[in-house]
Design a protein around this nucleic acid. Structure first.
Length: 259
DNA sequence: ACGAGTACCTGGCAGC
DNA sequence: TGCTGCCAGGTACTCG
């Protein structure tokens, strides 16, 4: 489940290797994988030079000379593979020196020509307790659902939202608009801290959906998780999951540390 | 505008 | 052992 840190880690691996290359071809290997970009539109990219890579939320953009960027999203099970082969390859880019593919068993990944509407960049300079307070104001939805809503904050998914809420001591089911000033302050800081730490560790590698960077190297942030994938928290308390579904799934929390 | 629910998709695993 | 069926999860859609 690639979230912001995994995409950032992938970008850092790919950027120095792909910069300066030109696209030779883009191919959809699995029919129906990319809904929007027609094969024709992809063909038009051939020959264009890669200026660089950029990340926005969980989206990775390949910036091209004289064209809108080619944007990749890995869904929940996607992985980028540079100069290698993997199972379930859905999309492939051939450049002058490299081959980059998306391996995505569950086919939730996407290839786009422009970013969807995305909210605040949590590691960007604009993200502050004040901004977060603005986003949560008067909202009745559970704070975890709001945190994972990409139109509000771009980059947090289940793993890092779970971790950020734990570090902030806030229960996932609490209505966004009911967080105190102090809680919002802690949550904004915790979100940044959790993401920055994971970026530093090269992303999460968790038991069920191991993240591997484009060269096949695992990240080290999974072992650092306080709640995610555990029955007993790093805090030593047995964890609980909400009975109510939040954003369509149960949320894990520590009943002692999160109030 | 907001919040909830569901479809999409497939590997993995619990339960029989 | 082998089958069934449920679950995970990000996004986009619909519905109230």
């Amino acid at each position: 489940m690639p979230e912001l840190p995994e995409i950032e880690a992938s970008k850092r691996v790919l950027a120095p290797r792909l910069r300066g290359d030109s696209l030779v071809s883009c191919r959809i290997l699995s029919p129906g994988f990319c809904r929007n970009p027609s094969a024709r539109r992809l063909e038009k990219l051939s020959g264009r030079a890669i200026r660089g890579l950029a990340r926005r939320g969980k989206y990775l953009a390949i910036e091209l000379e004289g064209s809108t960027p080619l944007i990749l999203h890995l869904g929940m099970s996607g992985r980028l593979i540079l100069d290698g082969r993997g199972p379930h390859e859905r999309f492939e880019i051939q450049t002058t020196r490299h081959r980059l593919s998306i391996s995505d068993p569950r086919r939730f990944g996407r290839v786009l020509f422009r970013f969807p509407k995305l909210g605040a960049e949590p590691l960007g300079p604009g993200f502050s307790p004040r901004i977060l307070a603005e986003l949560l104001r008067r909202r009745k939805a559970p704070v975890k659902a709001l945190l994972m809503d990409q139109r509000l904050v771009a980059g947090l998914g289940n793993i890092y939202a779970t971790e950020a809420l734990f570090e902030a001591g806030v229960r996932p089911g609490k209505a966004g608009g009911r967080l105190s000033r102090a809680e919002i302050e802690r949550l904004a800081r915790a979100s940044r801290r959790v993401l920055r730490r994971a970026v530093r560790l090269g992303g999460s590698t968790l038991a069920d959906q191991a993240y591997l960077d484009p060269l096949g190297k695992p990240g080290r942030a999974g072992a650092a998780a306080s709640l995610y994938g555990r029955a007993v928290g790093r805090c030593g308390h047995p964890l609980r999951s909400t009975r109510r579904l939040i954003a369509g799934r149960r949320a894990i929390y520590c009943p002692v540390c999160q109030r």
